[in-house]
Simulated assay, not measured.
Amino acid sequence: MPKMRISKEPELRRNEIITAAQELFLTQGFEETAVSDIVKRVGVAQGLFYYYFKSKDEILDAVVEQMSVEYFDEWNRIEGDDLLNAIEKLQTIFKSMFQILAQHQKLVLYIHTESNELMHYRLGQKFINRMITLFAAIIEQGNREKLFEVDYPQETAEILVTGMGYMPSIFRLSDEPQLFTKKLQAGLGVFEKALGAAKGSLQIGQFLELGE
Rank of each mutant, 00 (worst) to 15 (best):
Leu24Ala: 01
Val190Gln: 07
Phe180Thr: 03
Met97Gly: 05
Ala197Asp: 02
Ala45Thr: 09
Leu202Thr: 00
Ser96Asp: 01
Ala20Gly: 04
Leu195Tyr: 05
Pro10Asp: 04
Val190Ser: 10
Glu79His: 13
Leu210Gln: 11
Leu26Ile: 06
Glu65Thr: 04
Glu23Asn: 15
Ala194Gln: 03
Leu208Arg: 11
Ser7Ile: 01
Lys54Met: 09
Phe30Gly: 05
Thr162Ala: 13
Thr133Gly: 15
Lys54Cys: 09
Ala197Ile: 04
Ile159Asp: 08
Ser68Met: 10
Ile100Arg: 13
Tyr50Leu: 00
Ala186Thr: 07
Ser7Leu: 14
Tyr121Ile: 03
Leu107His: 11
Val69Cys: 03
Met164Trp: 13
Leu24Thr: 07
Asn116Gly: 07
Glu9Ala: 14
Tyr50Thr: 00
Lys106Leu: 10
Gly142Gln: 10
Leu208Trp: 05
Met167Thr: 00
Asp151Lys: 10
Leu195Pro: 06
Lys199Trp: 00
Glu23His: 14
Glu176Val: 02
Leu101Glu: 03
Lys182Thr: 13
Leu118Gln: 04
Ala197Asn: 06
Gln141Arg: 06
Asp61Glu: 13
Gly124Pro: 02
Lys3Tyr: 06
Ile6Glu: 06
Lys40Val: 03
Gln125Ile: 07
Ala137Pro: 08
Asp82Ala: 15
Ser201Arg: 04
Glu32Arg: 04
Leu184Ser: 06
Trp75Tyr: 15
Ser115Leu: 07
Ala157Arg: 08
Gly205Tyr: 03
Lys54Ile: 01
Ala21Trp: 10
Lys183Tyr: 02
Phe207Asp: 13
Leu83Thr: 11
Glu88Asn: 07
Phe207Ala: 02
Ile17Thr: 12
Ile17His: 14
Trp75Glu: 15
Glu114Val: 05
Val69Glu: 15
Val44Thr: 15
Phe30Gln: 11
Val69Thr: 14
Lys193Val: 10
Leu202His: 11
Asp151Trp: 05
Pro10Cys: 12
Leu184Trp: 00
Glu149Gly: 07
Ala102His: 12
Leu202Glu: 11
Glu16His: 08
Leu173Asp: 07
Pro177Met: 02
Pro168Ile: 05
Leu173Tyr: 13
Gln105Phe: 14
Glu65Arg: 09
Glu23Arg: 13
Glu74Thr: 08
Arg172Gly: 10
